[in-house]
């Protein structure tokens, strides 16, 4: 196995709020191999976006990485200077956000925005950059790229705007693309186009992708390996087939069962199996396992001792005492 592109060790990111310190990320370990798509799935507040923003060092000023390492190409991004980060962001690590309308500058033409990245990071001249921008737009499947260079973002549809974001991300041939809910704002037929494009490009460019989403369907069709997050921790980490075939953590299983199915017979009473209760307050976490308040299999031990993330099957890790061999 060749060396990992990104390796996160014991990452803790906390936020100061009126209600006390919110521990959004509590000891995340994550490795992403070359050319691999790793999915990070979880619900609101699970810490998946904060993990991604920590990698890019884009957390708001009330937050801080309090512990841990983010190793990328021999550098520890958790402790990198602002200058070092400027060289990494948009260059060796690119990010695609959920809402392309807010990530694109509304008063700049598409061509200028893509060309800016090329001039800044690759030192191309203006003419060269515009030419390369046209090639990039063509590559991400935008029809008539020459004409689109002169368009403003509002003149494009949501799907086209997300293609522009992907073109910008690819501009510097990054080693890693972080895609934070890249298709959540898009309609399902457009989502299918964008997911196909991402997979195609990954094969072409050979970069790694960290895909963050709440959608189990998107994860299962796109990722190679999946990490499931709950209350700031990874509770399960496995290859996509293994995870969907045999989810080990009660939370993962509960999540999968509460998604309405497309081809199963509907239950007679039309009721979905649900995970009871609510997500715990990240400022006042209980001792022991964070899922204990909602878990149908809770044991006395879960209320005292926090389970470690441990390999229960080969290459299949889970954070649960049920699988403590």
């Amino acid at each position: 196995m060749s060396e990992d592109v990104l390796s996160i060790r014991n990452l803790h990111t906390h936020f100061r709020t009126e209600d006390g310190v919110v521990k959004s990320v509590r000891g995340v370990d994550l490795d992403i191999g070359p050319g691999e798509v790793v999915g990070l799935v979880g619900e609101s507040g699970s810490g998946k976006s904060v993990t991604a923003h920590s990698i890019m060092r884009l957390i708001p000023s009330s937050g801080r990485i309090v512990q841990g390492e983010i190793l990328f190409e021999g550098e520890d991004l958790a402790h990198a200077s602002v200058r070092q980060m400027q060289k990494v962001r948009g260059n060796r690590i690119a990010m695609i956000f959920q809402e392309p309308m807010t990530s694109l500058n509304p008063v700049l033409r598409i061509g200028e925005q893509v060309a800016d990245v090329l001039r800044l990071h690759r030192g191309l001249s203006k003419a060269q950059a515009l030419d390369e921008a046209k090639n990039l737009l063509g590559r991400v499947g935008i029809p008539d790229p020459q004409a689109r260079l002169a368009n403003f973002p509002h003149e494009l549809s949501g799907g086209q705007r997300q293609r522009v974001m992907i073109a910008t991300a690819l501009a510097c041939r990054p080693k890693l693309i972080i895609a934070d809910e890249p298709t959540t704002a898009l309609d399902v037929t457009i989502q299918a186009q964008i997911l196909d494009l991402l997979i195609d490009l990954k094969h072409d460019v050979g970069c790694s992708v960290l895909l963050i989403t709440h959608d189990l369907g998107v994860i299962s069709e796109t990722a190679d390996r999946v990490a499931v997050m709950y209350a700031g921790q990874i509770v399960e980490f496995a290859e996509v087939a293994a995870l969907f075939d045999e989810p080990l953590h009660p939370y993962t299983l509960g999540l999968m069962r509460s998604v309405p199915k497309l081809d199963e017979d509907l239950p007679e009473d039309r009721l979905l199996p649900v995970i009871g209760g609510v997500v715990p307050n990240l400022a006042e976490l209980p001792d022991g396992c964070a899922f204990q308040t909602r878990c149908p299999h809770v044991q006395p031990r879960c209320r005292i001792e926090e389970p470690p993330l441990r390999e229960a099957r080969p290459a299949h890790k889970v954070r649960c005492w049920l699988h403590d061999a």
Binding site: T189, G217, S220, V240, L262
Partner: peptide, 15 residues
């Protein structure tokens, strides 16, 4: 176009 739950099977979908 709807992503299915479960591992990729390489089946074609209408895009």
């Amino acid at each position: 176009a709807l992503p299915r739950l479960g591992p990729r099977t390489g089946a074609t979908r209408i895009v």
